[in-house]
Design a protein around this nucleic acid. Structure first.
Length: 234
DNA sequence: ATCCTGAGCG
DNA sequence: CGCTCAGGAT
């Protein structure tokens, strides 16, 4: 019985076992990933917004620019003129949009949470997610990243890598699966532990960047090779 | 459909 | 060197 065949999104012992098995194999192969690399929670949130459709190395450059300009604070961002801010985060791509999003988010923090991220993060997961999603420019993945890696609460982050990997493994029927549906599959079959969700997502990203790449996947080196469905990429 | 850079490849 | 493309949100 798998999610492909049975009723979708319910607990499934076998599926649960498979997920833990995949996690274990990835962890044994790659080791701990130590996410999220940020000095402060605010930096983490800024990174999450900048990371939309962008590689981490690009985000790092943008963050460094903000630090150098002493602009990596709520007031710092709010006081930086749009064009200047856009220029600082330029390496992260979509810099005009992202400059606006950063400012919108800072205003939101200032107006609704007294410029205190901890106040926002003290909401329960459901309320926190709703709040974050109500912000223009923050979608499912960004919201969940902030909840998991910023607020340190157990929610599973799904991304393009997650869809690709689990599609290739034959555990979902399509890479176009809805975000919330794939998230439910993980959350209903894994113990809701922040550290587990933290490490699992990070490992999926690592694995998909290095091995299960979009283009030339390195199936020979893949630690999940034996359990990989269809052998399409072998 | 659009917004953008940087990595990867020929 | 120039081209293609990955990557979220609206």
């Amino acid at each position: 019985m798998s999610f492909n065949s049975g009723s979708f999104c319910s607990k499934d012992e076998n599926f649960s076992y498979k997920l833990y098995n995949i996690f274990q194999k990835l962890f044994e192969f790659w080791g701990p990933q130590n996410w999220w690399p940020a000095e402060t929670k605010f930096e983490m949130v800024v990174g999450a917004i900048l990371a939309q459709s962008t590689s981490w190395s690009s985000v790092e450059k943008a963050i460094l620019n903000l630090k150098k300009a002493n602009a990596l604070t709520i007031e710092g961002i709010l006081q930086t003129p749009d064009e200047v801010l856009a220029n600082l985060i330029r390496p992260a791509g979509y810099y005009n949009q992202k400059a606006r999003r950063l400012k919108d988010f800072c205003n939101f923090l200032k107006n609704e949470f007294d410029s205190d991220l901890n106040k926002l993060f003290s909401l329960d997961i459901f309320e926190l997610r709703k709040k974050l999603l109500s912000q223009k420019g923050i979608g499912f993945e960004t919201a969940d990243s902030i909840i998991l890696y910023g607020a340190q609460k157990p929610i599973f982050v799904v991304d393009a890598y997650t869809k690709r990997l689990f599609y290739r493994l034959g555990l979902i029927e399509s890479e176009k699966i809805e975000y919330n549906q794939l998230q439910s599959i993980f959350m209903e079959n894994l113990e809701p532990r922040t550290s587990l969700f933290n490490e699992f997502h990070a490992l999926i990203v690592k694995h998909c960047k290095e091995i299960c790449r979009n283009k030339k996947p390195e199936c020979k080196k893949c630690c999940l090779n034996e359990m990989c469905g269809a052998g399409t990429y072998k």
